[in-house]
Design a protein around this nucleic acid. Structure first.
Lengths: 218, 218
DNA sequence: GCACCGCATAGGGATTTTCCCTAATCTAAT
DNA sequence: ATTAGATTAGGGAAAATCCCTATGCGGTGC
């Protein structure tokens, strides 16, 4: 048997992390060599430990898994990144893949799926959770807007801040006083962000927030 | 050493469940004797297995941990229920305790906390996560409404329907046409539900929805 | 260098939504 | 039979949102 696969766990929930660690370490061909509770620490840990595979949760404080994946991919092209998520939305998947993730596993899936996925990406292949494969296969042509270059500018951090607070149920006025801005400015950020995202209603903002995992753990 | 504590795990995420199971089974004085992925199955499992402690996730499909706790408490007064949650909201805690939970642990906490908590409730005491104790100690006097008997009745299904749609970002008008009601009726349900919950703002509705897990996986 | 674009900021005024109060049925419980 | 809560809904006041316009500021392009 060759060397064991060296795994870095990036996941903010300690309980989940411990669970995965025990699961991984119970395998003969892999071991957890490091842990990180946010994206920044994950990047530091990769620099120090050079793992073979990073198991990366999307939703983490400070620097989320999506951004951490992008950064890691830029600095460490050979590292394999396996994204772990709660979401089944394929719109998100597209972002992940373009960020450079090698695989995508749902937290809902069986533990053996995770182990399979780690082996698969560790071997240099890409892995897509079976539950997602179905989604991706059907009805993808409708979501090619970003490929046609219609993604004119991404959401700025200010806009994101406003959208997030809107999704939480704050009024424009409340957001204004919270961010120390005029209501009018908040309205403008909201409108610009919505135009960029191609959405027209408050419900779409909530949906977007759910995908961004903004509505968790607050 | 006496008998091992017999644990039932009620948690919908298989990965998390596996993690906890390994953790529990690694202890000399406790073991997992059954698992359930929703509240209904948990109740069935309790009837069949009569565990000492049920580790119950709040957010589960079909029947959530809150309702399952209430039902179990009615039928099995001696069973200890330890609530496992992602949330730090103390308003929710009150509901849990009145539902009959013996303890409350955050998923974010260290695995040893969970083990401690299981031992504590298994011994017949109640356990409150240290992270929550702080919250509960400070500024609780403001939230004693339910102790004064102002919790006149629970949210009705109609009210819940309305709250859920509000949390999703629908306007009263949209909810009205969706449920085929006058806007005025929607407003009334909203106001009544808010009065019952003792909340006053849209943000509180969203928080409530997050706790109810209404905003996940749609 | 200057024109142009996007970001962050914000006002005015029209429109829409929500809030507060009141109230009529209907059903279940006492 | 009287009370309590659920479901329905209107009128009018108050608040929030929407649409349009506008000003600096910092890059990018030619």
């Amino acid at each position: 048997m060759p060397e064991k696969l060296r795994i870095l766990l990036a996941e903010d929930h300690l309980t989940v992390r411990e669970g995965i660690k025990m699961l991984v370490n119970a395998q003969p061909d892999m071991e957890v060599i490091g842990e990180a509770e946010n994206g920044n620490k994950a990047i530091q840990a990769v620099q120090m430990l050079t793992p073979d595979v990073v198991v990366m949760d999307i939703s983490m404080p400070e620097l989320n898994g999506l951004k951490a994946t992008k950064k890691l991919r830029a600095g460490f092209p050979k590292i394999k990144i396996l994204t772990l998520t709660r979401h089944t939305d394929d719109g998100y998947l597209q972002q992940l893949i373009s960020a450079g993730s090698n695989g995508y596993v749902l937290k809902q899936s069986a533990p053996t799926e995770l182990i399979n996925a780690i082996r698969t990406v560790g071997a240099g292949n890409s892995y897509l959770d079976p539950a997602l494969t179905r989604k991706v296969m059907g009805g993808y042509a409708s979501r090619t807007s970003s490929l046609r270059g219609e993604t004119k500018g991404e959401i700025t951090s200010r806009e994101g801040e406003v959208l997030r607070l809107i999704s939480f149920g704050y009024s424009n006025k409340e957001i204004g006083s919270r961010l120390d801005l005029s209501i009018k400015t908040v309205e403008a950020h909201k409108a610009n962000a919505m135009r960029k995202l191609g959405i027209t209603s408050r419900i779409d903002i909530v949906r977007y927030a759910i995908l961004q995992n903004w509505l968790q753990d607050n």
